[in-house]
Computed example of a mutant assay.
Amino acid sequence: MDAISPLPSRTSTVVSTPRKNKAGRPKRSRFWRMLKALFVTGFIFTVLAAGWFFLIPSGIEYRYMLADSLITTQHREWAKYLIGDKALKERVAVYAARFEEMGTERDTHTIPAIPVVSKQTADPEEETQPLTSIEEVDGDGYHGYLLTVRDPKKVRLVVPIKRGRGEKVSSMVKRTGAVAGVNAGGFSDPNWKGNGFKPIGLVISQGRIFYDGLGGKKSVQIVGIDKSGKMIAGNYTIDELMEMGISEAVSFSPRIIVNGKGLIKSRKEGWGVAPRTVMGQREDGAILFLMIDGRQPGYSLGVTLYEAQEIMLARGAVIAANLDGGSSTVLVDDKGLIVNKPASAYGERYLPTAFLVFEEPSTVQVPNIWAGMKPSEIDAGG
């Protein structure tokens, strides 16, 4: 028995080996089947998504919305990967023509006479509303703030104090003792590294032209206030502006509300989702500054111009116009602190102009730092 006892052991070993192999094969087979199923599912999803993105009306609208959003950033050229280089150029040209058209209708709104009231002449027993108030504005995918200035004649356009570089709005507020401040007009920004010192178009402060960069153009879209406190926005010549008694103004577009009606028909015409700064005026004369943050997923993506228009209409604006937005959008309080969350990765930007609010604007001196300078002589680089 001892001589043959090892045989069963060898037989047992031979039989057990195939069982392990058979047990292992189904596991590997299930893994590859799952991987294949995932690949096929992913491929089908990609094909369907691409079909929706490029062929279905809702997908095409979303694709162009993304392209419009890129057009408003420093990476405008990336939009060609969504709609093509030719379509990009055509779309920019279409928007430029549309914005120009939106500034042609003559504004006829009026405001009541604003009495001159100062801290010294005000009746201490009379209850009056504060000059300014700030409220939060929330909606689907966006967050921002609305600054209300109840006396429009308390707004002044302020410019940097030193030549060669723009100035942060927070610095302007602290330096001048303003009650509040927001960014205003655009500026030349070569390679997206501009120093914020060379404005685009016109800059008017205290009724005087500080900067004329029209380059022979007869008219320009402006956003500002006349000496009576009435907001002016639209396409005007310099002579027309002077005759109208313009006091503070910058060049920017488009005007989105005129004579109490919105000019943008739908969200798809709203020039993409982006941070926005918008100026408007109510029938009672109060100035509204809307600042919507953007490009910050999880906090605020921004709004289209259509959505900005609807926000302003809901708050009683009878006229409103777009100001420089994007990374420039900023709201500063009376302590010189930034209220919103600017989109710039480098912090608050250096800018050429800002609308500031003062209790006593007549005491504010705004020197013209561009006096004697030709636009061609100004270095706009960073």
Rank of each mutant, 00 (worst) to 15 (best):
G234K: 02
G185E: 09
R208Q: 12
K193G: 13
F210I: 05
K227E: 15
D189W: 12
K193S: 14
S251G: 13
G141A: 15
L147A: 02
P130N: 06
F197K: 00
Y236V: 01
I246L: 06
I232D: 03
V169I: 11
A249S: 14
V155P: 00
K217A: 12
D189K: 08
K227W: 06
N195M: 11
D151I: 09
V149N: 01
Y145I: 09
K227T: 15
I209E: 07
G207M: 06
S171N: 11
I225E: 02
G164A: 05
G207W: 05
Q221V: 13
V158P: 08
D123K: 10
Q206D: 15
V223Y: 04
R165N: 14
V149C: 00
Q206N: 11
D226R: 07
V137R: 09
G164C: 11
D239C: 04
I222F: 10
I222Q: 01
A249G: 03
D138G: 05
N235K: 14
S188E: 15
I209V: 15
W192M: 12
R163N: 14
Q120V: 13
N235T: 08
T132Y: 03
G177S: 04
V223L: 12
K198A: 14
K162M: 13
K168F: 05
L202G: 01
G196C: 05
G216D: 14
G144R: 08
L214E: 14
I232E: 07
Y142S: 09
P199L: 11
I246C: 03
P152C: 07
Y145W: 14
Y211W: 10
E248G: 00
D123L: 04
V223P: 05
I232S: 06
W192R: 11
S251R: 09
Q129E: 12
V182C: 07
P190I: 11
S251Q: 13
G224Y: 02
M172Q: 07
H143N: 12
D239V: 10
S251Y: 12
K218Q: 15
T148W: 03
I246V: 05
Q129V: 02
S219D: 10
V137P: 04
S205F: 01
Y142H: 10
I225C: 05
S228W: 11
L131V: 01
Y142A: 13
G216I: 09
A249N: 04
R163M: 15
P160R: 02
L202Q: 01
V220R: 12
V182W: 01
R150V: 00
E248S: 04
F197L: 10
Q206W: 12
